[in-house]
Design a protein around this nucleic acid. Structure first.
Lengths: 229, 229, 229, 229
DNA sequence: AATGAATGAGCCTTCATTCAT
DNA sequence: AATGAATGAAGGCTCATTCAT
């Protein structure tokens, strides 16, 4: 946790430090990211960083939290806009499109997400992933539970396994188009502009087949088919 | 790629280097793994490593290849033993059980797999994952295609998406019980002995619901239930 | 020397600073002791320390003075209690026992004494030892001179050399049981409870043999034996 | 212990490192001594020091050993020259004179001895004092035992306490004339050229009174008196 | 072909002190 | 009188790579 000194700090200085740290950790991850570089680029004495944060990990955790909140805020806005009360898999499709688009437009968030995913340092990885997973689940679980409540999912649908798959699929969709070598099957990394949208639909089709209430939502299936054609 | 010098090397010396490098990279990953340590433990001059491999990355790639082949060989033996011509999802369940058991019993391979998954260095990660993914797919794709051919999968099943999901699920099952902080939903990291088996069945149930030929395999469902009891 | 600001300070604040500084210097000595830590633990701004004391060394000197006075006060009480008019070497034996017991019971004073003895910084060591030696001598010299006056010491006894030896023996007895590596002969550092008492008697026996008036004190020897039984 | 690399090193380079390290540790002790400075002054890369020694402590231990051996060699030569078979306290007087003279002429050894005596770091102090004490005792104990064997000491003389006192007196004589603030009684630090010799005689007189065989050595006493006059 | 000594930039963190508020 | 943010040098140590032998 940042120190009180940090909280009392001028907004400019704080912004400079955050910007420099985000850039550095995005570029090299936690373990390889250099406090020297961060301090230099923020125009701040090396020692000052330690007045603001207990140590490197503390700074990294803060950066992750800030970044995650930024992404989350955006997604929650979009969720409202997309109307989460619609048939679930239709809504999910749009949501994933928005998700993919966000990371396409925000390379820094993408890089931070990647850094968190690939961190070698076990403790750093644990704490940073705890933050990210918390945000993911706080957003996704209510959506999924609502959908089941509305009858969009089978009554016996294994909600946790669905969430577990979403926790794999979402980072994959965010990163695979830009990080070569992590999607050797669906070809997200040799991207043409429409490819992510296509892949989104393929994943949703699978999830729908596995979890959707078969009789319930002819609307859903209809719309879905329509989109695919 | 190893140099010619490497290929002309005595088997003992080669084995010593590989063993030392596997231990080191398994313990600390690529970025943190130390060539000094490897050379010392292999009983080889530091300079010699650079006669055998272009650089650190080259050595790492070689180690990954060797390790992947070892895992692959084991899995292919097991696949034969388990009879891949059985109903697919029944077979898949057993296969994943074997997979989980293998990594439970082989901490070094687990660590190498984790190291490859979490490598920060982008280039290293890409090349190492390319190797691993190649092996995964060379084993899995024929199995899946066969299953479809036999009618265990729906005729219109999206094989690539299935493979894509398996490529997420398999590493997850291998690592999550040991690498804290990567499974916040299903609880694989607070493991009781039977938990992995349970999680395997939950994943397979989902995949089956999504991809299995519905009419075709009452056998599948039956057997599956039988196993659970 | 403390500033005037210090002397005008509220007693609470002063006590807090002294307590924090004693703890810190006792734990880490002067060179390694941290003003940051002292300020934090005293609940005082870092800058304030520099309003009270010229610099780190000045604070350290003050702490030493305070600590020395505390030890001295205790010893003077004990001296009165033990009756310094008794035969000198008998009295000295009891005094050293008390001395050893005091440092056994007061780890903070022991640590401060050790810190003063082992300080690397030459200037700090000199000033701090000057303080301690002053107290030692102000207490010991009168005792020794009285003893000579009473005829417990040979008339030609070399009082200063006796004091010089006491100035070596007293710190040694205080610290050696706790600071490993300073007593390789008598084994004070691998202490059994009775060992210090034994060592005290060995030192006193030597001093007595060297300085006592031979004819004068059959009483001394007698009493001494009596105590031992 | 120095590495093999160190033992294979060219004599020049080795001498340069030792010289630089002696100077630095003599000047600032172990804790404050800087490897940066040592490397720079030895004209050697910082990293090279770590090829020669496991760590800072290892280097320090080596320097201490080298220095101690130098002092010991000198003293053993002198002991032979002074004829240790002479009456013990007469011989001891000469020995201490030589000892004082050596440290008067060798400021570096004096500083190293002081550094060892005042080291704050407990582990460093222990190991470094163990070395020094070992040398002290290996030289002194045989001399004392011989003296007792020859009848120069009382048969019941407490040899270990004598050694214990010598272990306090010798460093004191070596350092007190140069390190202000450690001898507030005998005035060794406000030195006139003849003062150390005087102090030596005062200490020897005390030790003689305490430990010498009273009847045995009229020669001893005679010589002693003669010297004093 | 093998060696292994040498390199020197880089790592995170601590610290006493200053000085504007 | 009190604050506490800012400083930046210095600390020990690790590392992949080079190159003369």
């Amino acid at each position: 946790m940042p120190t009180v000194t940090w909280s009392r700090l001028g907004a400019d200085r704080r912004a400079a430090v955050v910007a420099a740290a985000e850039a550095e950790f995005a570029a090299h991850g936690f373990s390889r990211g250099s406090l020297n570089v961060i301090a230099r680029r923020a125009g701040v004495a090396k020692g000052s960083l330690f007045q603001y944060f207990a140590d490197k990990r503390d700074l990294y955790a803060h950066i992750t939290e800030v970044g995650s909140q930024r992404v989350r805020r955006h997604m929650e806005d979009q969720i409202r806009r997309l109307d989460p009360s619609r048939p679930f898999f239709e809504f999910l499709t749009d949501l994933l499109d928005v998700w993919v688009a966000y990371f396409a437009d925000h390379p820094r968030d993408r890089a931070l997400h990647a850094a968190a995913s690939f961190e070698v340092d076990t403790d750093a990885r644990i704490s940073v992933r705890a933050v990210i997973h918390r945000h993911y689940l706080q957003v996704l679980r209510p959506l999924v539970l609502d959908a089941r409540g509305r009858g969009d999912l089978r009554p016996d649908a294994d909600v946790d396994t669905l969430l577990s798959l979403l926790l794999m699929i979402l980072p994959h969709l965010a990163l695979a188009p830009y990080v070569r070598g992590i999607d050797p099957v669906l070809g997200l990394d040799e991207l043409s502009p429409e490819q992510p949208a296509l892949v989104v639909r393929r994943y949703v089709a699978v999830l729908s087949a596995a979890f959707a209430q078969p009789d319930h939502s002819p609307a859903d299936r209809a719309t879905h088919k329509g989109e695919q054609s």
